[in-house]
Design a protein around this nucleic acid. Structure first.
Lengths: 345, 345
DNA sequence: GTTTTCTGTGGAAGGGCTTTCAGGAACTTA
DNA sequence: TAAGTTCCTGAAAGCCCTTCCACAGAAAAC
């Protein structure tokens, strides 16, 4: 059987209380007894029993992450930030896939077992109100990433600022007929990005032409998909409208689909049309997309930090942090034709 | 405080043992008392305390996965198989990132806490022998994915068969001068794929020319990287050797780098040179790579099933399963110019 | 030298569950 | 009707830890 503190206590001729104190670095132990206990523990190759600890401490040093992580690359990178930060402080991470709102509710209904985790990280999906109460009542900390709820800490990307910067980049390059390839307006980011695009155009006195706004009707991934970009552009071309000189695209993955559709029609990027997109997923590099970079790793990192703070201090005021995306210039808008080839991860 | 079985026992006027039996579907309870208990449990919104259960049952219904999952797309997809299969049987998944052998040993040394998980899934990294004993002694089930050790269950891809099929595909298209862009020979898959490539060529009576074999000296990701493919090809071109008519490339990601290098030198795929690679990561679709598909989702799924079997029956004979990759024909070897555009996930 | 304070220590209690064990009630069998 | 079975149930023990409480002995104060 496994070694327990009783074994150590016996061998070191001390009480179990003392053993526990030594192992938890309590100061109230003579260095002499401490040494004795440490030596025995090492000799027996003692490993504390995580569950017993969690039961006694009412704390598990474990977080759960609910992630639609199979949908795109965004989550993988956020997850990396989460996991590295967590590993550094000795926390474990339990992963739950929930690709749709439905799956989220299912998870929340069935598997959300109290006592299991010290906190929950919810990614991208919208927290249904009936569960808000649940988290509040149970005092189970919840941190939202890439989504928002007024009663919980959240970490997001500033879509308004990002879309503004992207649009201004295009404007600064001299483009005056600019379209927007958008995702499904059901999604909050899609709405925010569109709004900001229009406003920025207005501010700069450049007319927004409605026929150049392509909103997606795809529901899968809210239209943030290669397919949506591909079909959207194909349909746009079918309409026979004259092409604008540039497009702001609401995600890299759509831009990739869109480029394929353009290429099939012998329209080239950036020679014939400029593109700025959003996200800076790993693929963006391979397709030379000029894009608005979301600091995904940092978001994951920060989410964990927020969570740890919240666990320490449950009554701290709720905070909502916005990351501002930064423009990464590659060659898809012609601003810079230098092909950056470094495979930096 | 949270609702416990004591609360239920009191309200339902039964003993705690009976409550526990009801909740665990023990048959030795009258349907009358069962109903009474179930009703109360529901009314109080009882949730079993996972840690207390784990402590009492000596079973946690939790698996840990040690994954170098930030290195490439392979793992994400395997992980998806793992997580979905696990969710279906009510298991939790704890994720640990370990990108190098060193990090693996660190994890094994520090964090491998007995009692925490029912089993461990180790991906791609090589299990150091000193830890083999550890798992054996502790009777902590271990299943290896994409790696091998004689004393544990493992699930792999048949590199030999895959390289053979890839090479034969090229041969069947009439190619007679075929090169191989390989990863670092330190890695087992790289060695296996090279060996099989050579053998297949021999079997078909086609000469292998050493100057057409490019082995990578990159250590990062064992040369399974875009950079390795890019630089490898650039250096090859610099040598001024006449190009073979086709290349077998040991991974998609290398092929993508290689294609970039070729393009810069005005060499086009598949017009000037044919390429078959290995893996079928999601990117492969976007680059139209003809490639050997590894059934990643299925591997994850099977890994979990094996693990569950192993937990049920610790003394079952050790099994080692080889998946045979299947050829996915796209346009990179000219065999099929139909661009498949579906964004199927 | 006596009383008070302080330190370090042992061990019981408690955390929430499963499981074993013993016993009461209902039922058979002689 | 007594003895033997069967079935269900309650309660205690155990899983392994942390923490609280009490106490002995040393140190400090008087």
């Amino acid at each position: 059987m496994a070694v327990t503190i009783y074994d150590i206590a016996r061998e070191a001729k001390v009480g179990i209380g003392t053993v526990s104190r030594v192992l938890n670095n309590s100061p109230k132990v003579t260095s002499e007894t401490r040494d004795r206990v440490v030596t025995v523990a090492k000799r027996l190759n003692y490993q504390p029993h995580a569950f017993a600890q969690a039961l006694a401490r009412k704390r598990s040093n474990t977080l759960s992450a609910v992630i639609p992580f199979f949908t795109n690359y965004f989550f993988i990178q956020v997850l990396q930030g989460v996991q590295e930060t967590l590993a550094a402080v000795g926390y474990d991470l339990i992963i739950h896939g929930a690709n749709t709102q439905l799956q989220l509710e299912e998870y929340l209904d069935h598997s959300m077992r109290k006592g299991r985790v010290d906190g929950t990280l919810l990614f991208s999906l919208t927290l249904p109100d009936r569960f808000a109460d649940f988290f509040l009542e149970k005092k189970n900390p919840l941190v939202l990433v890439d989504t928002y709820h007024p009663l919980f800490d959240s970490i997001r990307v500033d879509n308004t600022e990002g879309a503004k910067k992207a649009t201004e980049h295009l404007l600064s390059l001299g483009h005056r007929t600019i379209g927007m390839m958008n995702a499904n307006l059901n999604s909050v980011p899609a709405r925010e990005r569109l709004l900001s695009f229009k406003e920025t155009m207005n501010v700069h006195g450049v007319e927004v032409q409605d026929e150049y706004i392509i909103n997606s009707s795809y529901t899968k991934n809210d239209g943030f998909s290669r397919e949506a970009g591909y079909e959207g552009m194909l349909e746009f071309l079918r309409r026979g409208v004259k092409l604008p000189s540039a497009f702001f695209v609401s995600s890299d993955i759509q831009a990739i689909g869109m480029i394929a559709a353009l290429r099939e029609n012998n329209i080239h990027v950036p020679e014939d049309i400029a593109i700025v997109s959003f996200d800076d997923i790993e693929l963006a590099k391979y397709f030379n997309l000029t894009t608005m970079q979301q600091p995904m790793f940092n978001m994951g990192e920060l989410a964990v930090k927020k969570m740890l703070e919240r666990i320490e201090n449950p009554s701290a005021p709720i905070s909502s942090i916005n990351f501002t995306p930064t423009l990464v210039v590659r060659s898809s808008c012609g601003a810079n034709k230098n092909f950056v080839l470094n495979d930096n991860r």
